[in-house]
Simulated scan of single mutants.
Amino acid sequence: MVFMYSNHLASKGFEVTICFDCQNMLKKYHLPTFARKIGSQILVRHRPNWFDLDSRVEKHCIFGINEATMPDSDHVVATWVGSARPVAALSAAKGIKHYFIQGYETWGTSAGEVEDTYRLGMSNIVVSDWLADIVERASGTEPHKVKNPIDGDVFYPTGEERRDHAVAVLYHPGEHKGFSDALAALKLARERVPDLEVNIFGGPMRPDWLPEWCHYTCNASQDQLRSIYSRSSVFLCATINEGFALTCPEAMFCGCALVSTDFQGVHEYADAECALLSPVHDPESLSINLVRLLLDPSEARRIATLGNKRAREECSLPRALSAMEREFAHR
């Protein structure tokens, strides 16, 4: 989302700089500090390699968020809970302060500490209705809501053959993403659907423990993602706690039927009418819903059609871009 909005604002004449805080980058290699800094600068210069970032968007490799590392600007945006306090502490020379809240980031941080960041006096921007409720209750101020959009020029059915027994899944090591539950559901489903095709994609290298019957794409490009979604009948999501889960509506835009846990963020673009929802931490229920659609292609297509319509209504790109422009239009 940060990259997408940066591209749009740059196209509208805004001068945009993304500051990558690299103070923890490459630490696992136990390199000297100067070597880590050089390596981090090289990585930032050549990344992201999975997203077409506009060349007009500047990238800065910084080590810590403070007066010395951050450029003077009209606006400055904290993009996750760990950056909220350092950004809020910056002087007025660094710009009007905004806080882009994409989830209730309680993984690794207590709920009280997370909610404290909503009261730092920044302009809070949230991506969903349920986050808006939490932020307003914690801060006493109504946040600006800019629901996450999906770019229909990037995510659409490619026309390649959609396989009735194929399912797409995101791998993410974060416990809140619930991948262990997704894998358990897939193993159960495979007992009923022996020719199950599992198309997994993720940022990390393929985990050693992933079963050999799972196809895996590391750092999938947008073209690869579109293809994975378009040849899969179902997208499976086992998220436990997430503000939105962008891959779900991406897959719905590409024609997948959604089988998901009933986490809060999913209701931003789906309900029981256009998706099959299961309780959180219930792999057996997930597998039952998954098998139901895999063995009934006409029902999968019906759910996919309803889901596609709903996702396109709720995740409007023009609406979100206009709202973000308004957020940064005033100095």
Results as ranks from 00 to 15, higher is better:
203 G>L: 10
203 G>H: 09
203 G>D: 10
204 P>Q: 11
205 M>P: 13
205 M>Q: 15
207 P>R: 01
208 D>W: 13
208 D>R: 13
208 D>L: 14
208 D>T: 14
208 D>G: 12
209 W>H: 15
209 W>E: 15
209 W>D: 15
210 L>M: 15
210 L>E: 14
210 L>Q: 14
211 P>V: 14
211 P>N: 15
211 P>R: 15
212 E>G: 14
213 W>K: 14
213 W>F: 15
213 W>H: 15
214 C>V: 02
214 C>Y: 01
214 C>S: 06
214 C>K: 02
214 C>P: 01
215 H>L: 05
215 H>F: 04
215 H>R: 12
216 Y>H: 12
217 T>C: 09
218 C>Q: 14
218 C>V: 10
218 C>A: 13
218 C>Y: 08
219 N>H: 12
220 A>M: 11
220 A>T: 09
220 A>D: 07
221 S>W: 00
222 Q>R: 09
222 Q>L: 05
222 Q>V: 06
223 D>W: 03
223 D>Q: 12
225 L>S: 00
228 I>K: 03
228 I>N: 02
228 I>G: 00
229 Y>W: 12
229 Y>G: 12
230 S>M: 08
230 S>R: 02
231 R>E: 05
232 S>R: 01
233 S>Q: 10
233 S>F: 02
233 S>W: 03
234 V>A: 03
237 C>S: 03
239 T>I: 10
239 T>K: 04
240 I>P: 01
241 N>G: 08
242 E>W: 04
242 E>D: 15
242 E>S: 06
244 F>I: 07
244 F>N: 01
244 F>G: 03
245 A>M: 06
245 A>C: 13
245 A>Q: 07
246 L>V: 09
246 L>H: 06
248 C>E: 07
248 C>P: 02
250 E>H: 13
250 E>S: 13
251 A>H: 07
251 A>E: 07
251 A>C: 13
252 M>L: 06
252 M>C: 04
253 F>Q: 05
253 F>T: 04
253 F>E: 04
253 F>S: 03
254 C>D: 07
254 C>S: 12
254 C>P: 05
254 C>M: 07
255 G>C: 13
255 G>L: 11
255 G>H: 05
256 C>W: 00
257 A>Q: 11
259 V>H: 01
